[in-house]
């Protein structure tokens, strides 16, 4: 499939648009349908398309498995970190209002944006990780506990 000109050019056109749409869904989630869960999945799909058209090794050069694993953990840490910061600021765990005591609604808004980003990073990274694992052939000498 790597030599199919039409597929490659169509993919080159589509991938940036899918990524842009993922970012739109991520950051417009406050005003319309969308949010971290959906954006993460859509972003992962753009990497899937890249891997399907240009080959898995090429995708792994862009997003190495190590980076993907680190990002999966980083998203959860960002989410929990926002909770910890709001505790340090004097509120309860995940009480974003404490992030900006002057205007609690603004603090809530900032908190929501940050944790949605955390959700998006984790979901995208886990989905890419799952794809890498399922798309690679399995080692013959590594088949279970035999």
């Amino acid at each position: 499939m790597q030599h199919d000109l039409i597929l490659r050019i169509a993919a080159k056109l589509l991938i940036p648009m899918i990524m842009l749409y993922a970012l739109y869904v991520q950051f417009h989630g406050d005003y319309g349908p969308g949010g971290g869960f959906q954006a993460g999945v859509i972003f992962a799909v753009s990497i899937f398309l890249y891997a399907l058209v240009f080959g898995l090794p090429a995708a792994m050069r862009v997003f190495s498995p190590t980076l993907v694993q680190a990002l999966a953990a980083a998203g959860v840490l960002l989410y929990a970190g926002v909770g910890v910061v709001s505790m340090i600021s004097g509120g309860n765990f995940l009480d974003y209002g404490a992030l900006n005591p002057g205007d609690r609604a603004l603090g809530e808004h900032i908190g929501v944006l940050l944790i949605e980003l955390g959700v998006g990073i984790t979901v995208a990274a886990v989905m890419i990780m799952l794809f890498y694992l399922f798309a690679s052939p399995i080692d013959a000498d590594d088949s279970g506990g035999h």
């Binding site: 694992l133 399922f134 399995i138 088949s143 279970g144 506990g145 035999h146």
Partner: peptide
Amino acid sequence: GLALVVRIYHA
């Protein structure tokens, strides 16, 4: 679940 299926198949 699918990962478990793959493992079962290979065993």
